[in-house]
């Protein structure tokens, strides 16, 4: 499953609960992020032990995209039983801030910047 635009590509790795984000995401608002939110929700509802978000190639995310990410992460954490693993890159300074905030409200979380 893949959602793509001129500047971005978000897709689910084959046979895996891993979602890969690439490019620049600065869509116009919560509504515009709905297809990606639904992709995340589908992966989250699969009942796997671990959901992985690979953001190492995501250069930019605006606040509406951050809202989508946080909303998904918080609801997954509240549901319980699934660990959230997030891969980030130090090449993009915003990722330390945005992904770091997940520590404040996601219980079972691993953030990997290696």
């Amino acid at each position: 499953m893949e959602i793509a635009g001129n500047e971005y590509r978000v897709h689910r790795a084959r046979d895996s609960a891993k979602v890969i984000f690439e490019g620049t995401l600065r869509l116009s608002g919560t509504k515009a992020y709905k297809p990606i939110a639904q992709l995340l929700q589908t992966v989250g509802e699969d009942g796997t032990d671990i959901v992985t978000l690979d953001m190492r190639k995501l250069q930019f995310l605006n606040s509406a995209g951050i809202n989508m990410l946080y909303k998904f992460a918080l609801n997954l954490s509240r549901k319980g039983g699934t660990k959230l693993v997030v891969y980030g890159s130090e090449s993009f300074p915003w990722q330390k801030k945005v992904l770091g905030n997940l520590n404040h409200f996601v219980k079972d979380l691993e953030i990997d910047f290696s």
Binding site: G29, T30, K31, S63, A64, I66, N67, Y70, K71, L74, N75, R78, K97, V98, H104, F105
Partner: peptide, 22 residues
């Protein structure tokens, strides 16, 4: 954090309100 919790609780919310906060 409060805004994130409010947004997560409302599946129909279309305003994130996170721009200035972030």
């Amino acid at each position: 954090i409060r805004r994130i919790e409010e947004n997560a609780a409302d599946p129909d919310s279309y305003r994130s309100g996170l721009g200035f906060l972030t």
